[in-house]
Amino acid sequence: MSMWLFYLERLIQAFPFFLKGLWMTVAVSGLSLILGTLLGFAAGIARASRVKVLGFLLFAYVDFMRGTPFLVQVFIVFFILPEWGLHLSAFKAATVSLTFYAGAYICEIVSGGISAVPPGQMEAAKASGLTWVQRMRYVIMPQAMKTILPPLVGQYVLLIKDSSVVSVIGVTDVTRVGWFTVQRIPEGLMVFGLVGLLYFVVCYPLIRVSNALEKKLRTDSHGL
């Protein structure tokens, strides 16, 4: 019991490192979240508008990202790109792999949301003489966002959780700090309990937001 208290004290001393790790987790997932959202929206709109040349490429990209484990994708970016002359630091490799990973799922969410908009809306917008950009900006996207938003926030939660995997290529995020700490403080439950708690603090509010959005937007659409 005294041993346990001793380790708890040392864990509290190590707490600043955990906060640094949490900052790294937030930084790497925040950056990939922004880039992945841009990529996902571009790809999703292209997919929904049936750009022929891109069709097959997008299909292959999304299927590859969805059909293989994220860990394998991280290894591909980190170990294989250098062989082709593209050297990335651990942080950059992590951002690249997380961005492409999230982009594929967001592409699916966005193209799904756009195709959920009744086709009559697009036809009416065309008949009104709006350009493609205007149709997208003022008619399609505002309606599609209702279906897109809740799963999008859910995807952000998945992104933050999956960012723990990049700890294996040397990004010092919370998970890696925990992995280092457990070598010196051999109380796995305590150390990874703390790691879990820190993720919980970030993810749980987002899950609640996603649920609330789903409820709110669902009741909204009944009024339409």
Partner: peptide, 22 residues
Amino acid sequence: EAIRSTPLLAQIYFLYFGLPTL
């Protein structure tokens, strides 16, 4: 909620490093 709000990797390490201490 606890499982859904934490990464699987942290859960794996939790059990991998934690079970032996129990």
